[in-house]
Design a protein around this nucleic acid. Structure first.
Lengths: 144, 144
DNA sequence: GCAGTCGTAACAGTCATGGTTGCAACAACC
DNA sequence: GGTTGTTGCAACCATGACTGTTACGACTGC
């Protein structure tokens, strides 16, 4: 389906801020993060704005402004990020309602709905098992 | 992410063909299926063409032509349909490669890759647990 | 040969996403 | 109080995936 990269970029930004703060800096700017992710600062600000609404990061304005973590990396899971950043369901129903006069058209949506909900639940469980601290450790463990 | 409905429509089509054949008919036309799914016959033909390439259905041409199942509904899982119909991964990486000179930019892709592969594997396992026969039974069990 | 259906190309419309520009709001610092 | 650097946000365009639609050739039973 060639999905979007929002979750990837959001995790990238959080790991970057976390590492930067551990190196003694107070805040990170969207421009620095954008340079690391090789994208536009506005894209980063948009994403971090959603993470702020979810209570994962904070921002300061004015000179010397930037972004900082609102919670420790250990306490943020990929599920937190996913819910902050991905609005819709993994699988979609018909665009237009199927023929309700047909047996299949009438019953297919509740049937698939139940299946899809189960799958989304297991995906959420998987995402909830990974913290951003795990991600950062994996990042640092990558071979040069 | 507001995904696509290809898997839903494909399952709808297969269940429809399966039920139709159990009612004594040999083949189903794309027009009949499109009427049930409330879409265009060409959309159905395109999808069923991908299912045919995967060996799930067969088609006949000429007068009295149409589509029939190549395997029993019991032996077709949603994973078979998913693989026939959804090409890409669930989650995408960065559009443009991140800065390899940055520690995070260098390590983030292998880190996320590993996580995503694990999640896709569990999704596949879930999909493999549901047969189209299960789906049809769920469809028929829907309250009127 | 006729009729009905598939097979497929071509194109427009919609939507999500990403990239870009521009500018107001804000706050530290001088 | 002015300057400066950064966020916040709106507006717009480009791209790509998917859907819907039309058109027409290919095929086959009658």
């Amino acid at each position: 389906m060639s999905a979007n990269s929002r979750l990837t970029i959001a995790a990238h930004a959080l790991a970057w801020i976390g590492l930067y703060q551990r190196q003694g800096h107070e805040v990170a700017t969207s421009e620095q993060i954008a340079a690391s992710a090789n994208t536009n600062p506005v894209v980063i600000r948009r994403l971090l704005g959603e993470l702020r609404r979810a209570g994962l990061v904070e921002s300061r304005r004015g000179v010397g402004a930037g972004w900082s973590l609102a919670r420790e990396l250990e306490s943020i899971t990929l599920l937190d990020v996913y819910e902050a950043v991905e609005p819709g369901p993994l699988f979609a129903m018909h665009r237009t309602a199927p023929d309700q006069g047909c047996v299949v058209g009438h019953g297919i949506q509740p049937a698939m709905q139940g299946i899809y909900e189960g799958i989304e639940e297991t995906v959420r469980n998987e995402l909830a098992r990974v913290t951003l601290e795990n991600v950062l450790q994996d990042v640092l463990a990558a071979p040069r």
